[in-house]
């Protein structure tokens, strides 16, 4: 009897935990953000950046980071990204414009060759500072500050 009650209690706790976890997931960040010196490194969690709602959430979150910094230095790591849409490019442009307005700098790194081609076709490779690796991008940040 006691064992049954204990099992039921665990079951209720597990369901509640799943529910809370499920709700938390709804508003969960789509980014991994870390800070090295004064450079904010941002990594996308999603492999596909296509969903309008997700793109808006990503844009809002990065805009919040920019607003909180005096001259924001941002490095976006595309290592996980397989696909992106023109709406995602639009969000990156908005982020770049906001960083520039605050005398900051946005750099992009680790872009898959197929996605890099999208930047070339749209000529956005001329607008953004794109680096092959995170190290290359970090070096450029360091050169600019020294």
């Amino acid at each position: 009897m006691l064992a049954n009650h204990t099992a039921m209690l665990y079951s209720v706790i597990a369901k509640a935990g799943w529910f809370i976890h499920g709700r938390r997931r709804m508003s969960e960040s789509r980014l991994r953000v870390s800070k090295i010196d004064d450079i904010t490194q941002i990594e996308f969690i999603d492999r596909n950046i296509l969903d309008e709602a997700n793109i808006q959430a990503i844009s809002d979150e990065i805009s919040g980071i920019i607003e909180q910094a005096s001259n924001p230095h941002l490095l976006i790591n595309f290592a996980n990204v397989d696909h992106l849409s023109s709406a995602a490019l639009g969000a990156l442009i908005t982020i770049n414009n906001k960083a520039n307005e605050k005398s900051g700098k946005l750099r992009l790194a680790n872009i898959d060759p197929q996605i890099y081609e999208v930047f070339v076709i749209t000529r956005l490779n001329k607008l953004f500072s794109i680096h092959e690796t995170l190290n290359d991008a970090m070096e450029q940040f360091n050169k600019a500050t020294n």
Partner: peptide
């Protein structure tokens, strides 16, 4: 044309161009 210098920093207008490309 979204690839013109004056349009590069506009955050929209690339969808049809990508479809055609």
């Amino acid at each position: 044309d979204p690839t013109l210098i004056e349009n590069l920093s506009k955050p929209f207008g690339r969808g049809v161009m990508l479809m055609k490309a």
